[in-house]
Design a protein around this nucleic acid. Sequence first.
DNA 1: CATTCTATGAGACAACTTGACTCGTAGCGA
DNA 2: TCGCTACGAGTCAAGTTGTCTCATAGAATG
Lengths: 189, 189
Amino acid sequence: MPSETDPRFLRSREAILNAARELLLGSGPTAVTHAQVAERAGVGRATVYRHWPQTEPLLLEAMATVPMPFLDKPTAPTQDWLRRELTAIASQLELDDVRAVSTTLANAALWDETMDARRARFAGILTDRLAAALDDAQARGEIVLTLPSREAAAMAIGPMYYRSTIERAPIDSTLIDAAMAALGTWSET
Amino acid sequence: MPSETDPRFLRSREAILNAARELLLGSGPTAVTHAQVAERAGVGRATVYRHWPQTEPLLLEAMATVPMPFLDKPTAPTQDWLRRELTAIASQLELDDVRAVSTTLANAALWDETMDARRARFAGILTDRLAAALDDAQARGEIVLTLPSREAAAMAIGPMYYRSTIERAPIDSTLIDAAMAALGTWSET
DNA sequence: CATTCTATGAGACAACTTGACTCGTAGCGA
DNA sequence: TCGCTACGAGTCAAGTTGTCTCATAGAATG
């Protein structure tokens, strides 16, 4: 990694990352090879090797350029915040690139250390944030949880993820409502 | 596809399929190449080409040798049947090979027609069977569904699938109970 | 047991891919 | 204007892929 501010270097880097992302979305992770990335990026093959000697870190970094669904800072009332966030995740999951990245992550993590670390970090953030928000909501008396708060992520996001990646069907609000209701009993308002 | 009963043919076929499955489970779908399969199967490279000129149908057939979780014929009461079936799916999802096959299916289906057909068939069976069982239970007054019955599979299996493939944590009975409760209101008994 | 059929392993082969290296050029900062 | 360095193009050896040939041994048939 020679220079870090040289425009030529940054230009190549961006072109390579874009090409890698496009290849991933268009043809899957196996298409992300030095040769194919170079051609699509309009860059010499050697340049790709110079920037990323191994394809796997390149794939990883290209995946990181896709905006993944996370949970925003919670606002009160938690119920409204959660419905808003789950709806946002639902629309993210309709996007091809989010589907591509998440299923690639889940799959590759089974055999690749680094991918697994990324998966764990991603899952951990969602679990932590949702648990914190729900614990707080329960402390404020907004909800009585029927589930340990750290299981809420699986309960809330799982159905949408399954629907989007296994059933490949659109996520409707019914599913979101049911998932929210499954977390606990919300107080009237 | 020369002979169909020749023991030599069947022996090679089995050895190849086993090797392909082992490679998939041990090193991921990209490891399933003619050369690697041949070596692990203790078979000539040409033999693998003769049986499967393309690697993709081989991978597909190897995946089909892994017993995937399905829903058994429903028995009454539906509540007991469902808890039994979901618990069975939960333990299946703890197995490396089931995880490998399901995440590979979900991922590869995004770019491969045949994989996608397999995914759709798999998802459809689960959706259909659960919907039928729940419709029947509702007709018998055992449950009042809070969800269209064809959304039940996502609601019931989704959390376990997410937990197993994204969070990579064990599935406890709390999650199963919560998922069942989310489907509707079960009658007392 | 002898004969015929055929799936197989070993090997040869060309075409292609991969990863490493060299060198002249052109974009960049000073 | 000048030095620096990232770059593209090209070369190269090593490895991979897909195809084909041929002698052999395993299986069915009589």
